[in-house]
Structure formats: structure tokens, C-alpha cells
Design a protein around this nucleic acid. Structure first.
Ligand code: FES
Ligand code: FES
Lengths: 145, 145
DNA sequence: ATAATTAAAGACAAAATTACCCTTAATTAT
DNA sequence: ATAATTAAGGGTAATTTTGTCTTTAATTAT
């Protein structure tokens, strides 16, 4: 469905929303370990999310790390997709036509349309905070049994 | 959503179902042109679909090409995903966890679940033929305005 | 039989994605 | 001020996906 980069971005954002605060920043190492992602690659993705402090914030130096503000927690989850440039994901034709349109619909268009809208809705109605509250803090992403 | 390979496979299958018959086989060149895909790459994908004649059939030599039997037209669209090894697409966790399960659901699991089921349903209930009938023959995949 | 045509098969190349490493800059603690 | 810590940034490497090309095999038409 999503690229690895986007998966890591979503997991990292939710994790940071669960565990961080302005007084308790999370290091790259902790985040990457918690969400089971390659640290260096995760660093790049976190940079995208901190660009213009659009989703998360970061501070360098001792006791530095990543955190998210209460305000940013109220952002739609869609903002994460935007930061990864994968926000147009759900505008696309499921069969890969250059343009998904009602005028020249592909054979799957009208059946896919309501599903597509639910996917868009999913990332629109949920705020980062709401997602963060959905699972208990302990073993959020450790389901690798 | 899908890989290029899968997109081409779906488009090619639907196109072949629309235009081919045992007496009117379609050449690689015609198919690739019609569905707007790179010919050589499309050749590889058509090979996957003809493997064990699971979805489409092919004949070499003059007046050879690709076609689909009436029987195969009754196959679920899901068979195309299977041939491309992308059938497990909708079993996966939307956040990329190794396992999508009810026991250890990710924060999006229960909201994503009904959408996932509709996606699965989409590829289960539609036969290749049904999709082929959904659009007129002329400019099926030429929506590149 | 021979030549022409078409897909199959394999090797290869390009591009994109994913991942890693090293240096730099910022911040903090001492 | 100095040293330690941490993210930022740049370059590069590995892997996967996408795309190309050439040869081979099968089939048909002559
Ligand atoms: S045209 Fe294919 S999904 Fe809209
Ligand atoms: S566990 Fe994430 S979608 Fe089911």
C-alpha cells in the first residue's frame, strides 16, 4: 500500500505522539528501535517531518531529540502523507491511468470510488493524537511474533 | 497502490478480455500500445499471466498472440493479483507491521479493516469479463488528455 | 522443407527505493 | 571555554523495480 518511508513516517509520528513531550524528547535510536525501522533511513524521514516543523519538532544536543507539540497533535494524519509527498496516493486511478476522472473512468472507477473516499476520510478525520490514543504505550509496534 | 507490473497486468487482462478471441489473438505490440505500457516489460508480465495458462493463453508464430478463453473470463480479478504475487496486498497491515492481527492491532487496524474488506471484495466479486464489459471498446485506456 | 512471424527466455541496464556512513552544526553540561 | 551529545546534511551503497535487448523456440504460410 504505502512505501516503506511512509510506513516508517506514520509509525514514528504515532510513537512520538504517544511518548514524547517538550520535556521528554526521544532520540533517533529510541524511535527507530521502537518502531522497528533502520535508524539512518528513519533519520531522513524524521527530517522530512521536521521540515518547517510541520509535524514534529527536533532539538540537537544533549537531551535533545524529537517531540511533538500539543498543537501538532491536532493535525490530521494526512499531514504525514503530505510531508512524504504521498498525499496524492488516493487521487490516483487504481489501474494506473494517468488521470482518474468521471469523464473517462477506467473499468474499476465507480466501484473503487467509494473505497477511495473512505481511505481519504480515514486520514482526514483522524488526528495524530487520536491515533496515538488507540493503542497502549507498551508494545505498540512489537507484534513480531 | 499497486506496482507498475500489477497495473499493467490488470489493464492487459481487461483489454485482452475485451478484444481477443481464439480466432483473433492480440500481439504484444498491440496490447502494449493499447494499454500504454512498455512492450518489453509488458512481455514479462504477460508471461506471468500465461504461466500454466492460468489467466490468459498464448500462441507463437504467425497470427499468434495472446487471447483469453470464455472459461478464464469467468475467473475472479483476484487471479491477476495472484499471478503477480501481489495477492497478499490486502492482508497486510497498513502501517507495515509484520503481522496484521486482531490480537495486536496497530492503531489504525479497526478503522482500516472494513476498507480492507471492501478492497478484497472488489477483486473477489468481479470476474475478468465483468470488468471488460464496464467500458466501451474504443478508448478504454486512452485518457491521457 | 524453408522462410517468416510471434512469444518465451535469459541476460542486461536504468531508475527508484531503501539503507548506511561520515562529517557538520547546534545545543547542553561541565 | 571545552567536551560531550544529538540531529542535520551530504554522499554513497545495496536492493528492488522497471525497462531493454538479444537469442531461442514454436508455429504458420509458402
Ligand atoms: S479512472 Fe481508474 S479509478 Fe478512476
Ligand atoms: S495491524 Fe495494522 S492494519 Fe491490522
Amino acid at each position: 500500500m504505502f512505501s516503506k518511508a511512509t510506513e516508517y513516517a506514520l509509525r514514528a509520528t504515532i510513537y512520538i505522539a504517544q511518548k514524547s513531550s517538550i520535556t521528554n524528547k526521544l532520540s533517533l535510536a529510541e524511535i527507530a528501535n521502537a518502531i522497528d525501522s533502520p535508524p539512518s533511513f528513519t533519520a531522513k524521514i524524521l527530517q522530512l517531518l521536521t521540515k518547517d516543523n510541520c509535524v514534529i519538532n527536533s532539538v540537537r544536543g544533549p537531551n535533545g531529540g524529537f517531540y511533538i507539540t500539543d498543537k501538532a497533535k491536532q493535525l490530521q494524519l494526512r499531514k504525514v502523507l503530505e510531508a512524504l509527498n504521498e498525499n496524492d496516493m488516493f487521487d490516483k486511478c487504481i489501474l494506473g491511468l494517468k488521470k482518474c476522472s468521471e469523464n473517462k473512468p477506467c473499468p474499476m472507477h465507480f466501484q473503487y470510488k467509494p473505497i477511495k473516499q473512505q481511505l481519504i476520510h480515514l486520514f482526514h478525520v483522524n488526528t495524530i493524537q487520536q491515533l496515538a490514543e488507540k493503542t497502549d504505550h507498551r508494545n505498540l509496534f512489537n507484534n513480531d511474533i
